[in-house]
Every structure is written in C-alpha cells, then in structure tokens.
C-alpha cells in the first residue's frame, strides 16, 4: 500500500499592507524554483495575491465563477504562473456590500470538494489571507483542519504586532478543535537592530519564534512594478537570497505550537516599555 503524500498546508496572515502577498508570492516562487509543487490560494476579495506570479495579470476568481455559472470547474479557476505555481483567487463581493467572510468559507469549501490538492499532487499549499482575523470567515483556513501551520507577517510597528497578537488569539481558540498551530513570525521591513529587537521580544513574549527577517528593499518595489516576484525579476539579488532562505525554513518547518497571546492591557504595557527604551536611545543616553 502506498501511503498518501501529506500535503503541507500553510496559512499566512498579517495586517493589511504589511507585505503578505509580496512575501507569500516570493515564498511560492522560491519553493517552486526549488522543485516543490506549490499552490498559492489568495483569500482576499481584492484578488491580487497571485498577480506577481503571473506577470501582473488578474485571474478569474472562484466566487465570480460561482456567481456567473453557479458551478465551478477546476480549469476555470486554477492557473499556472511562474515555475508552474498553481494560482487560485477566492475573490469576493465589491467593497461595502455582501459578506467577504462568508465568501472565503464558500471558496475554501469548493476547493475542498473539487479535491484539487490531491489531484495536482501538490507538496505545499499557501493561503494568503486578508488582514487579521476580523470574523469567522477569515478564520476558515485555520479551522476545520484545513491549514496545518500559520505564519504571520509583521513589521515592528505596534499596529502590525497588535494584528498578529489578535491572530494568535484566533489560533489559540481553534487549537483544541483541530485548528492550525503557529509556525512563527515572518519579520518584514526590518532594517535596523531595534526593529529586530522589538519583533524578537514580541515573539519571545508570546511563546513563538521569528522564522526570517526580511529587510525593506527597493529590489522588491522594482520587481513588483514589473509585475514579477523578486525571485523571478532579480534572482541573484541579496533580497532573493533572503526569500530563498525563508522558503527553505518554511518547507522544512514541522512542529508548530499554540501561541500565548498577550491580553490587551499587557500588550499596551509591553508597547510602553519599548517606547521608553526608544526614547532613551534617541536622547543618546
């Protein structure tokens, strides 16, 4: 008897605009380049998660297809991009109407019913999920045993850390009913030592780890303006190496944990201690 290959399903969350899609797409591209069969599943009504894997082009979304045809066929919503990465966009309602959360639930369920992961013989599925966990719908990839590991993309900004802490609360909630566990923090836009220290301290306080530090880089911007990932547009750059290393860490990651999020008061006090430290540093004391 052949044992069924275990597909590694990973969800990536973080505050809006923090660089989730950029990071996820570069990880997907790097993993594909390393020979893995990868799918990137964009769970955001904006449906632009996989753009840079497909030369800046949008693809038809699962929900738009469902709306128009009432059924969804695999070939209508799965498209291949850079190095054969399979790209899927959940899609969702226009801004200000309907319920995007319900949309994510429906889109993920449709993909489950279509059994595409098994059929495509995938190694890794990456869910790129909008914002922090604002409602039950956005928690879909981390509950019901869909994704196994969660990573959060965060900068050293307080609001970004706040969003990550909220995500940890969500993970903790679902952890005893078969939900996903936390793999760690992907520290983004880390260009100086104090940002690194802040994010390290946050990971330490919440019982998790930082799996990679990604500096802010103009290479990323120029690549994106060409509609490409850094891995594709600047394969030999320093930044590409950072993404390759990060992808490698994630591919080899096996054990995730239940995080220990801070209570809101605790989080504020923690942030205040950092404010004091930074002030002291600025005064050159």
């Amino acid at each position: 008897m052949v044992t069924k290959k275990k597909i590694k399903q990973i969800a990536i969350y973080g505050k809006g605009g923090i660089g989730k899609s950029t990071t996820t797409s570069n990880i997907s591209a790097a993993l594909a380049k390393a020979g893995y069969k990868v799918m990137q599943f964009g769970c955001d009504p904006k449906s632009d998660s996989t753009n840079t894997l497909r030369d800046g082009n949008y693809i038809p979304t699962v929900l738009d297809t469902l709306r128009e045809k009432n059924t969804v066929q695999k070939e209508e919503v799965i498209f291949q991009g850079f190095q054969g990465v399979y790209c899927v966009e959940a899609g969702g309602p226009a801004p200000g109407v309907g319920c995007a959360g319900r949309g994510i639930i429906t889109a993920v369920q449709i993909m489950k019913q279509l059994k595409v992961f098994e059929e495509l013989d995938l190694d890794i599925v990456l869910y790129d999920v909008l914002g922090d966990v604002v409602c039950g719908g956005f928690a879909m990839p981390i509950r019901d045993g869909i994704a196994e590991h969660v990573f959060t993309v965060s900068s050293a900004d307080f609001m970004s850390i706040y969003a990550s802490n909220n995500l940890f609360k969500g993970i903790q909630k679902f952890s005893n009913s078969g939900g996903a566990l936390l793999g760690g923090v992907i520290a983004n836009s880390i260009n100086d030592d104090y940002s690194r220290a802040i994010i390290d301290d946050f990971a330490n306080r919440t019982g998790t780890q930082v799996v990679g530090y990604v500096p802010r880089s103009v290479t990323v911007t120029t690549s994106e303006l060409q509609g490409k990932t850094t891995i594709e547009a600047a394969p030999d750059s320093e930044q590409a190496k950072i993404y390759l290393n990060l992808a490698n860490t994630i591919a080899e990651h096996t054990v995730s944990k239940v995080p220990d999020p801070m209570e809101i008061k605790e989080l504020r006090e923690w942030a205040a201690t950092w404010a004091d430290q930074l002030l002291t540093r600025e005064k050159g004391l």
Binding site: L66, V97, G98, C99
Partner: peptide, 10 residues
C-alpha cells in the same frame, strides 16, 4: 441564496 449571502442581495 449562498451567492447573495456573499455578494449582497441587491
């Protein structure tokens, strides 16, 4: 129906 729950009932 489900579509309307996602996209709104307009």
């Amino acid at each position: 129906k489900e579509n309307a729950a996602i996209f709104g009932g307009e």
